[in-house]
């Protein structure tokens, strides 16, 4: 049944790399590859024109797979090093926690004690509601479904709430990048589709995807259909309720509601296709950490998807593992 996007490496059969990854990206790709279960196939798509043929070949290779398709038993990228244990020195909380551990097991074997399987334990930090709980670090992107290409957002979580975030942008080298209204509209539709997929509406996601494909194929001559779709979606009351209250302070110069942003994506796509688009005030990717602080993880995912076209200069969904569904 065609191809579908895998949500994690565990669910993926195929790793398709589009374009030429730089060194940082290549290590990420290797990491994802190591996490995939056999049978697995890795392809490198150099030019858009060869994608279809490559994917057909992938299908064959997945079918042929037999017992020989095995890799190593332990696939870990993490090597414990001396500085991995030490918390950031300029961080007061971290330093305090560090001293604390010394008191507990006071001595030299503590690095092995505190690092089961070579990975450190999470450390505590004061929280907004006055409790001290452990912090977890979760990098989001670059290889993530419904996530803008090349963006890496490293969030610090207390439970599922983001207390801190850092952003970096990997060099994205899209292939066959054009810049015309159809492509710009397609990117806006991509973002809208991602929001819908993350919000749990796979049917609407699929429909937006088809609209976007037709847009890229030049089959949409004006923005009528896009506007119609956006209108219908805007009237869905449960969707409006589910997205309500998700407010980003200062996303487009002021506070904005996610539902309004979703509708605006369709409106902008329509404007691109009708030729009356005004360039939006793009929030720089650097504004992202301030934006997501205090949000719940799911909210962060929804917002980043909705802001996708403004965050990633290249094509969205540039690289991600794809799951073969054998059809």
């Amino acid at each position: 049944m065609g191809w579908c996007i895998a949500e994690s490496a565990a669910d993926a059969d195929v790793l398709a790399v589009l374009g030429a990854p730089d060194e940082a990206f290549a290590s990420v790709v290797d990491h994802v590859w190591a996490q995939m279960s056999e049978p697995r196939v890795r392809v490198h798509v150099q030019a858009g024109s060869e994608a279809t043929a490559l994917l057909d070949e992938v299908r064959e290779r997945l079918r042929l797979g037999a017992r020989r398709l095995t890799g190593p038993d332990v696939r870990r990228g993490f090597t414990p090093s001396a500085d991995a244990m030490a918390p950031e020195h300029d961080d007061q909380d971290g330093a305090a926690a560090h001293g604390d551990h010394h008191d507990h097991d006071g001595g030299h074997d503590h690095s092995s004690m505190m690092m089961p399987d070579g990975i450190p334990l999470a450390e505590g930090a004061e929280d907004r509601d006055g409790l001290e709980m452990d912090e977890l670090h979760l990098p989001l992107g670059p290889v993530l479904a419904h996530w803008p290409a090349g963006v890496v957002l490293r969030v610090t979580l207390h439970g599922d709430v983001v207390v801190d975030a850092e952003v970096e942008q990997l060099a994205a080298s899209g292939i066959g990048r054009r810049d015309d209204p159809a492509v710009r509209a397609a990117r806006l539709l991509d973002a809208a589709g991602s929001v819908l997929a993350l919000a749990g509406l796979p049917a609407e996601f699929a429909r937006v995807r088809r609209l976007r494909d037709r847009c890229l194929d030049g089959e949409l001559h004006d923005g009528h259909e896009v506007a119609q779709f956006g209108d219908r979606l805007g009237r869905r009351r449960v969707l409006r309720w589910v997205l309500s209250g998700l407010i980003a302070e200062g996303s487009h110069g002021g506070s904005e509601e996610l539902h309004a942003r979703l509708t605006a994506l369709f409106e902008q796509a329509r404007a691109e296709l009708d030729g009356d688009a005004v360039p939006p005030v793009a929030p720089a990717v650097q504004a992202l950490p301030a934006l997501v602080r205090g949000m719940e993880l799911a909210e962060v995912r929804l917002w980043v998807a909705a802001l996708g076209p403004d965050l990633a200069p290249g094509l969205a969904d540039q690289e991600m593992p794809a799951e073969a569904a054998h059809g």
């Binding site: 994690s8 565990a10 669910d11 279960s37 993530l144 993350l198 993880l297 799911a298 995912r301």
Partner: peptide, 24 residues
């Protein structure tokens, strides 16, 4: 769905994210 936030795409797959093979 719609009662599946524990396994939703918006939390990268949640409880399903690391499951492969027969476990999945």
């Amino acid at each position: 769905p719609p009662m599946d936030p524990g396994a939703g795409s918006d939390v990268n797959g949640g409880i399903l994210a690391e499951l492969a093979a027969v476990d999945r």
